[in-house]
Design a protein around this nucleic acid. Sequence first.
DNA 1: ATTCTCCTATCTATCAGTAGGTAGATAGAT
DNA 2: ATCTATCTACCTACTGATAGATAGGAGAAT
Lengths: 178, 178
Amino acid sequence: MAKSDTAERILDIAEKAARTGGYNAFSFREIAAEIGIKSASVHYHFPTKEALGEALAKRYSDHFFSVLGDPQGAEPAELLKRYVAAYGAALKQDGLMCLCGVFGAEIADLPPPVASATRAFFERNLEWLQQVHNRQGLAPDAAEQAAAHMIAALEGAMILARAMGNAALFDAAVAGLS
Amino acid sequence: MAKSDTAERILDIAEKAARTGGYNAFSFREIAAEIGIKSASVHYHFPTKEALGEALAKRYSDHFFSVLGDPQGAEPAELLKRYVAAYGAALKQDGLMCLCGVFGAEIADLPPPVASATRAFFERNLEWLQQVHNRQGLAPDAAEQAAAHMIAALEGAMILARAMGNAALFDAAVAGLS
DNA sequence: ATTCTCCTATCTATCAGTAGGTAGATAGAT
DNA sequence: ATCTATCTACCTACTGATAGATAGGAGAAT
């Protein structure tokens, strides 16, 4: 196995906590307790908290884009529907925020490697969406605007829906997007 | 004076920290140190952290809506421009996130009174916008959708712009809104 | 086969730092 | 005298992190 089972479990537990309450919401002790090991053993897999945070953001980003697939693949309209659905699934299936949305909100207080991995997530989002919008015939400027707008609306819709405790608000907020 | 000068300074410092890194980013000790008093003295003005957090969200909300004014006042189009500008100012003048945007992202981990005050902010936003959209002739359902969409896009645009370290992305993301 | 060596993954025990919070004293103003 | 706002001094709980020990398995050398 490339990554040990324990390392994956650490990431799973940390991700859930981070997507609930941000970077300060997961701790080595709590993760360890949930797995049934000692906090020192968590440090064996991830030497520092920022290393764990960085791994978290990278894994989240990779999973996210593996779901979306190639922006040059399926029909643009289908890809955009898939994109909106991916955010909706994160909210409704997991019942959690987008990891990088939470990290993005507190980015100025994150350790540089974590902030950087978070930035990379949004950078990849912008690129992916711009490619899809280009295929729809939008000019580069318009494609960038449309991409930024979609990301913003989706991240914000998650916050709004969670803050109000009303998942239907997510759908209302993104109704016109795809 | 209704609120002592010290209490206002406490709120100012806490707000800045919270809008940078969330609820866990401000502490009684740091606030006290910045003012030049002891942390026990901060507890005199706000007995608990959740009381401070609640006061923070309420003051932020009140300031915000006092800037916006009466939704039945100026022309709807003008009000919407003002609404978008209020978010833009929070980002560009203060260089910070929307307080309730940050709190909203981590709402599931906030003490109930803070979560409640955060929810109230979004509730007020929805109501204010719905009134304005109603005046523009939108049906109730469409007005609610439009309101949710605007809030989402603006909160998300702040996150995106800050995460990417590029304030122009905010403008790009909200270009079509008002 | 047995022994030696190395690696993985965990443990115990501990550290310094910081968190929020409290009790009780005190100086100064009303 | 009382109230306001601060102080000193302390508590318990938790944070991330480290040092050093240990058990068990894998592979190589004898």
